[in-house]
Design a protein around this nucleic acid. Structure first.
Lengths: 231, 231
DNA sequence: GGATCCATCTCGACC
DNA sequence: GGTCGAGGTGGATCC
């Protein structure tokens, strides 16, 4: 990884065009050739960047640019598209290269997929006598997270979210409506399961006859088989 | 901006938990206290990070950690939530501070707002004889991107997206339904215009009688008056 | 300050 | 390789 602190101007042309006026910034060149231009603030997103696969070519500035104070022009060209990042370097304040090696990568826990998996293994969370028909039950407009049968044998479409918001209720509504057209399943009701359900989402769900269930992730994980845990 | 290259292990706890095993990485500490941990690959997203507002506290490792090779523990605590990033430093390979100053910021062109503007100026893109009633036509549930009249004088609500997905169809459906309650406008039909329309969105739109139109941004821009361009 | 919506979204999973 | 949905989404804008 090459780290350059430089006074520079940056121009991007690709899916949009974007321009950064002259200022001092960090230019990070990764081992795969990708380039990130960071300022000393904002969030984790760079001001401008080029994603791999891409190649960096350093060139002399033309006469006009040289007169404007440009000492080098870095052109980062994406290999698969017309996307191009041009960094006009005025002054280099720091330039260092470091060998970082390959990163072993991130281990995550607590995301929706895991929540869905835990609920699939423990459908009795929704009620005694419930059983799972299948996870990711396919429909023409996408898969339903869980399709179950309650203790009375009635089909239930379950939408699992980490945070239950109005979008999720809309999604579940579409699934239930569609599944109800299938005579082998109908009548199908809906359950909206999330760690946290926003009041507006709860209101809309209730209004549509959808049952809301808030689930306790730690409790689900507590009774989970440790061998299936991520860590 | 402080740039540290270090052999480290990183743990995040907050909306999820995430763990990075021991490896050499770049740790970027920005002026606002935010911290980014980058590997030498991937895209612009750090492996792990803490967004501002947050504070960084450096502490000695406890005995157990010290025996494992930890020389310092950086705790980055978010000021508004329980989110916490813990960087266990084993070895510092580089450590430098640079004063970057405040960045003048990014100038963009070519986003959805611009697409909407171009279409408003060229409603004949949708058909001969079409005319624009107004952009951002107000409704109680938000403004419709474009309200037009087609060659037969029938009102058309146009939703403009860069990428047309299912959410946009839902949004347009709500607008059309609402506008159709207005006897001065009814009947109102819908047009879903985007540079790219996802198959599922197209299916849903068609099912609801909404016309899909894919628009060519470059072509629109090509016939655009240069004087109205941003740059 | 909160809600809503776009994004050069990125990223992973699945087909 | 395409498509689709989630995200510690982030960030801007509107109210």
């Amino acid at each position: 990884m090459r780290l350059v602190i430089a006074k520079c101007q940056v121009d991007y042309a690709g899916r949009l065009t974007a321009h950064l006026p002259l200022a001092t910034r960090l230019i990070m060149v990764k081992a795969d050739g990708s380039v990130l231009v960071h300022s000393d603030g904002g969030s984790y997103k760079p001001l401008n960047w080029m994603s791999p696969p891409c190649t960096l070519v350093v060139a002399e500035p033309d006469e006009e640019a040289a007169e404007a104070g440009v000492t080098a022009v870095w052109t980062v060209q994406n290999s698969k598209s017309d996307d191009r990042l041009v960094v006009s370097i005025h002054e280099v304040l720091h330039d260092a290269d470091h060998d970082l090696g390959v990163d072993p990568g991130l281990v995550k826990d607590g995301v929706e997929a895991h929540l869905q998996k835990l609920l699939a293994e423990q459908v009795e969370t929704f009620g005694v006598g419930w059983r799972l028909v299948r996870r990711e039950y396919p429909t023409p407009i996408g898969p339903v997270d869980l399709l179950c049968r309650d203790d009375a044998g009635v089909a239930v479409a379950v939408e699992v979210k980490r945070r239950g918001e109005i979008d999720g209720v809309e999604q579940l509504t579409r699934y239930v409506e569609l599944l109800n057209r299938d005579p082998h399943l109908s009548p199908v009701r809906g359950v909206f399961a999330a760690q946290e359900i926003k009041p507006q989402a709860r209101t809309l769900a209730t209004d549509r006859g959808i049952t809301c269930v808030t689930v306790d992730y730690d409790a689900l994980r507590g009774v989970d088989d440790p061998s299936t845990r991520l860590f």
